[in-house]
Design a protein around this nucleic acid. Structure first.
Length: 591
RNA sequence: GCCCAGGUGGCUCAAUCGGCAGAGCAGCGGUUUUGUAAACCGCAGGUUGUGGGUUCGAGUCCCACCCUGGGCUCCA
């Protein structure tokens, strides 16, 4: 079945390829039990229960067999069947998963098969006409997957593959996968000495090395500047706090799975904070607030700890200790749409700074079912949702409404950005919360002298420093913009006798505020250039006899190319403006 | 957590049937003083993830644990 994936020709091909994969699998293992085999966004998979674990060699065997079934050019034939007949057929063929699927189909649903040569599958279609119409295909990987995504059900072996109309398109897709591997932040982090994750420290806990830390510091400075401009006040709060605080906030109830174990100290129980909000609420509550004070915007780069299951950890993208670029805005009900709008504005401005030109917005709301996953009254949820919609409309931002994905305390806007090779990353989240103010009983004194409840907006723009840094690393493939590059310039003396001149050049650049290294190693210039290239240092300034004679340096860019001789002042005049403007791509020279 | 695949100097990898743990890069020492992506010679570097077991003998076989990776959202 391909619902939700479109019925276009490519999806039909992929869905059909999944059937051919199952055909080949039954050749290899006649006893294979079939799960499901749908098309996906860029390929297809099929799940199987098999007598033994698949090996990478099996993929080759399966591909060869698939090619034979494709060449046989079987017609995909559609047929309809009565429920009893279908149940008997799949029972007789020892396909318990198919039997379960049929049993779960609504009574009025038509039960249909698609037959292609020797293979019959319970399937709604659609398919291409014949197996020969499946384009260029390739099997990619084997993975475990629970039947119906439920960890309490049997685990099947999933084979992933992909299909494109032509060999060229398939090759291009495989090249994209290769490009993604080349950009992997875990590899780049080691090669560029940015951060490490060390089992003796703990899984999911990031150690920032000097170069990574330098980038983080620059990101944080930028973040603080942007927030101060927009009326945020910075706060700091501790890493641990009393458990009661989290009981009040609801985290011990609603977020229990994510909490690190408790610590007992002098008859009090503490936990590592999984979120910063209760602390910020305490700061709000530390004095009587007037309607005139609102909105109050408290920002913090707050490090929180969340227990993530070991299998879900991934480099710096998914970790157990993360620093949220968090803020909580306390405002009046009539202000919160403005505040959400302001946060959207900030997000757009931040994306532009990093060259993220494309993004997608989800509005996550409650299930209509509700089913006890959410707290708070219907009225408040309705108000919150309307405020988010108003803010999105004000920016003319299109969005998808996602039912059931709201936070337990309120609806939210999530933004995914597309990186340089088109992959989507969830960064920003903006959440309205009528619940915490209630639970912590915070208020402000209104114009009419009554006590009123403020509304809280939680929001993170980068999301978390660890994750954002990983995304940037992959987005830029390690070639960070000049303003972020840990080392912006390396000065390369051609021979030892040029060392003093190079030191002088480097000092002038450092005085101008650039991050500079001199490569004084007893290596040839070619080697120094190669190493600087591999470190993706934006500028190499080379100086030998000719340069000293002309009181110049020879400029080389990491993008390749000798820019020729320049005076240090000329060089600074090209580079300083792009550092100042935080240009995401420009190196300041036309190559 | 679960399934599968892995874990051998800092990194990338080798080691036949269970029989002396090896190479390149990085590092260190020396020689070379160089014009736009890797100079040359040498040295050092290991409790093979951890713990246990089998064996005359374990990187290799068995058990447990830890960590890393691919997945566990797409529902005929």
């Amino acid at each position: 079945m391909s619902s939700g994936n479109g019925d276009d020709r490519l999806s039909r091909m992929r869905h059909s390829a999944a059937h051919v994969l199952a055909t080949a699998m039954l050749d290899l293992f006649p006893d294979a039990e079939l799960g499901i085999g749908p098309p996906t966004d860029d390929g297809f998979y099929y799940d199987f229960q098999l007598p033994r674990a698949l090996t990478p060699d099996d993929l080759q065997t399966l591909e060869t067999s698939m090619q034979q079934h494709k060449d046989a050019d079987y017609t995909f034939e559609y047929s309809e069947h009565r429920r009893n007949e279908a149940l008997e057929y799949f029972k007789a063929h020892n396909q318990p998963f198919k039997v379960e699927l049929i049993n779960d189909l609504p009574n009025d649903e038509t039960i249909s098969y698609f037959t292609s040569g020797p293979f019959v599958d319970l399937c709604r279609g659609p398919h291409v006409d014949t197996t020969g119409d499946i384009g260029a295909f390739k099997l990619l990987s084997i993975a475990g997957a629970y039947w119906r995504g439920d960890e309490h059900r049997p685990q099947l072996q999933r084979v992933y593959g992909t299909t494109f109309e032509t060999e060229d398109e398939l090759t291009a897709h495989l090249d994209r996968l290769e490009e993604a591997r080349r950009r992997d932040h875990r590899t780049l982090a080691r090669d560029l000495d940015l951060f490490s994750i060390n089992p003796s420290v703990g899984a999911g806990l990031v150690l920032w090395h000097p170069k990574g830390a330098r980038i983080r510091e620059l990101l944080e400075t930028y973040w603080r500047e942007e927030h101060r401009k927009r009326g945020y006040d910075m706060v700091y709060t501790p890493h641990i706090g009393r458990r009661e605080l989290w009981e009040t906030s609801g985290h011990t109830q609603w977020f229990a799975d994510g909490l690190f174990p408790e610590m007992e100290l002098e008859h009090q129980t503490f936990i590592n904070k999984p979120m910063n909000c209760p602390f910020h609420v305490q700061i709000y509550g530390s004095q009587t607030r007037s309607y005139r004070d609102l909105p109050l915007r408290f920002g913090e780069l707050g490090t929180v700890y969340r227990f993530e299951r070991s299998g879900t950890l991934h480099g710096a993208l998914r970790v157990r200790g993360l620093t949220q670029d968090d803020a909580h805005i306390f405002c009046r009900q009539d202000q919160f749409a403005d505040e959400v709008s302001g946060a959207l504005d900030l997000a757009k401005s931040v994306y532009a700074t990093f060259g993220f030109n494309d993004y997608k917005v989800d509005l996550s709301v409650r299930d209509t079912a509700g089913d006890g996953k959410f707290v708070g009254s219907d009225d408040l949820w309705g108000l919150a949702e309307q405020g988010l919609i108003d803010a999105l409309d004000r920016h003319d931002i299109p969005y998808d409404r996602v039912e059931g994905e709201a936070a337990f305390y309120g609806p939210k806007i999530d933004i995914q950005v597309a990186d340089a090779i088109g992959r989507m990353w969830q960064l920003t989240t903006i959440q309205v919360d009528f619940n915490l103010p209630e639970r912590f009983d915070i208020s402000y004194e209104a114009e009419d002298g009554t006590r009123k409840r403020p509304v809280m907006v939680h929001r993170a723009i980068f999301g978390a420093m660890e994750r954002f840094f990983a995304v940037l690393t992959e987005h830029f493939a390690g070639a960070f913009p000049v303003w972020l590059a840990p080392v912006q310039v390396v000065v390369v003396p051609i021979a030892d006798r040029h060392g003093a001149y190079c030191t002088d050049v480097a000092n002038r650049l450092i005085d101008a505020g650039l991050r500079v290294e001199i490569d004084q190693r007893a290596e040839r210039m070619n080697r120094k250039i190669r190493d600087a290239q591999l470190q993706k240092i934006p500028y190499m300034l080379i100086a030998g006899d000719r340069d000293i004679e002309a009181e110049q340096v020879s400029v080389r860019l990491r993008t390749g190319g000798d820019m020729g001789g320049q005076s240090v002042d000329q060089f600074l005049a090209s580079v300083l403006p792009i550092v100042e403007s935080r240009d995401p791509v420009n190196l300041g020279f036309s190559a």
